[in-house]
């Protein structure tokens, strides 16, 4: 079974902090990491390969430095890495990104399953997975928390919805996004590290993929970031004073004014 896992290299957002005096982002020392939600997709790809055979190809779109992320995937069991990189892609939104990735998957050609994380840590949209499925004309299964079986051209899996879980069946090839519950991603192994060290990554440009210029980059992205700003805090805070008992009693008074108590 040939599995394609789509990943993204993102800034480690937990380290992106706001300088409270200047209200600007402090980015110093922020390293690039594999989008944490994608690590579950990589692990699931490797586990499915271990269960059903085949190989795992990691696909990412990004600057040339994203090759580090691909090598990290090989360290934890992936077989190959493909970097789709071109200046023409700069500024692509989710629509343009899913177009580029779907073109790359078409070029890979022989695939049975495409896996992505449920969303990225920086953008938080979760739109690229379904976008790819649509472009490829194959079904999409969101928030998969367990893969029961893949056989006879069908995948049986459990997905998370707001009210609980659903067991669904989808034909393969299909695209699925995985939730955090699906597995615990493994740590790098010695054989993986050695393989990653000597691994030859594939790099494809817009031309390699036969990409239409007006469908990527800023030109191919209908959405546009007009402004950014720090979240505002507008609430008037009141710190309750006194001993613990006094504070609790003051709070109870406030709550009963609100008719909660």
């Amino acid at each position: 079974m040939n599995i394609v896992v789509c990943i993204k290299q993102v800034p480690s957002t937990t380290e992106v902090k706001i300088n409270s005096e200047t209200n600007t982002l402090v980015r110093e020392g922020v390293e690039s990491i594999i989008n944490p939600f994608d690590t579950y997709a990589i692990e699931e790809g490797v586990r499915l390969k271990e269960r059903f055979g085949g190989k795992v190809t990691i696909l990412t779109m990004g600057p040339p430095q994203a090759d580090i992320a691909l090598k990290e995937c090989i360290e934890v069991g992936a077989d190959e890495g493909i970097l789709v990189s071109d200046r023409a892609f700069a500024g692509s939104d989710t629509l343009a990104t899913s177009y580029v990735l779907s073109k790359a998957i078409e070029k890979i050609g022989d695939y049975d399953l495409v896996i992505s994380g449920k969303q990225t840590m920086d953008g938080d949209t979760g739109q690229v997975g379904p976008g790819i499925a649509q472009r490829l004309g194959i079904p999409f299964v969101a928030y998969v928390s367990r893969v029961d079986d893949i056989s006879d051209g069908k995948m049986k899996a459990e997905r998370m919805i707001d009210e609980g879980h659903e067991v669904v069946e989808a034909p393969v090839p299909c695209v699925m996004s995985v939730s955090k519950e699906i597995n615990v991603p493994r740590l790098p192994s010695l054989r993986g590290k050695m393989k990653a060290k000597s691994a030859q990554l594939t790099v494809w440009s817009a031309q390699d993929l036969g990409i239409e210029d007006n469908k990527v980059g800023l030109a191919g992205s209908p959405t546009f970031v007009m402004q950014i700003f720090s979240p505002k805090r507008e609430r008037q805070s009141e710190m309750l004073e006194g001993s613990s008992a006094e504070q609790v009693s003051a709070l109870c008074d406030k709550l009963s004014e609100m008719k909660v108590v």
Binding site: T94, L95, D124, T125, Q127, G129, Y143, D162, T223
Partner: peptide, 23 residues
Amino acid sequence: ATALGRAFIPRVAAIIETGLTAD
């Protein structure tokens, strides 16, 4: 932006080829 909305609307946007802003 329910589980259903997040899985289904991006496909619609991809077919129409329009912009979609999440959450």
